[in-house]
Write a protein that binds this DNA or RNA. Structure first.
Lengths: 150, 150
DNA sequence: TTTGATAATGATAATCATTACCAAAAAGGT
DNA sequence: ACCTTTTTGGTAATGATTATCATTATCAAA
């Protein structure tokens, strides 16, 4: 799949390809951080100063809707975004959050055990409450090594 | 433990007992819902019309800090609160959220499997990343039976 | 290539939950 | 009852996100 595979998907959904969208997508593709809308704005602004914050928000919403990126809430009052699984080799993972300094660690371990639990849980909950489960959220909170020493 | 056990704990921490605090705590004790600050405000207002929204927020923060209640974010832009585990027979549970109508279901099932996974995961993460894990969040999202039919 | 319908943009104002501020009122030890 | 300290509640401020709307850009068709 070439560099422009997402262009096709974009077009296929009837959306237009624009410079802002290109740049925003690129920024998210090249970082391993969990950027907020404002951080993305600042980053995009470097190569495309005409960008407006509104466009950032709108584009992020669009990218989420299309499944290119994921939106998270890590409890710091602003949404954060990262590339979806499958893109740029991103694997399914969860987050480990330091409640002191805000550090975020992605971890992909325990996938097997987790999958098992999720399978059981989703099945059980579906039956018991007649819920159709589409998604889940798992996060761990604690203190990173640096903050433990303080 | 009598009805006033928490009065002692309150006093013990150097906090004063006030009518607003009493009323707010009572509201949270008597509901099984996941109320937002504003909903609590409205409820408290019925029996104590002089209440101020600021006091609601302050008291909730205090109750969270003291461990009487838990604060949650269910993705609807406002914090929601519920009585902590152990109070009024509340058990440790997680939430099942309907992404369509916002319905929230508490479930206590799968505690064993979950506990196992959490134990393993927390241990593994602690070792690998030298993180001291203090808390976790697990939520499932999906469609409730009513919303599936639409 | 130019055109034209339509979608996208960006500056600005509006929202809305939550906080900060501060003077007035309440709590609780004396 | 008094006095010191905490608590309260009205109001304004904050800060992320959304709505509005005139201007601009995209792209299929001529």
């Amino acid at each position: 799949m070439g560099e422009r595979w997402w262009h096709r998907k974009f077009r296929g959904c009837g959306y237009r390809l624009t410079v802002p969208r290109e740049v925003i997508f690129t920024v998210l593709s090249k970082t391993s951080k969990h950027l907020s809308a404002e951080e993305i704005y600042i980053e995009v602004h470097k190569t495309y100063p005409a960008i407006g914050l509104t466009t950032i928000y709108r584009t992020l919403e669009l990218l989420v809707e299309m499944g290119f990126i994921l939106k998270f809430d890590f409890g710091d009052k602003r949404a954060r975004y990262e590339l979806a699984e499958g893109l740029q080799g991103k694997q399914h993972h969860h987050h480990l959050l330091c409640t002191d300094c805000g550090k975020i660690i992605d971890y992909t371990d325990f996938a097997k055990e987790e999958k098992e639990l999720l399978g059981q849980t989703e099945k059980g909950l579906s039956e018991k409450f007649n819920f159709k489960i589409t998604n889940h959220l798992i996060q761990f909170y604690g203190l990173c090594s640096k903050c433990q020493k303080k």
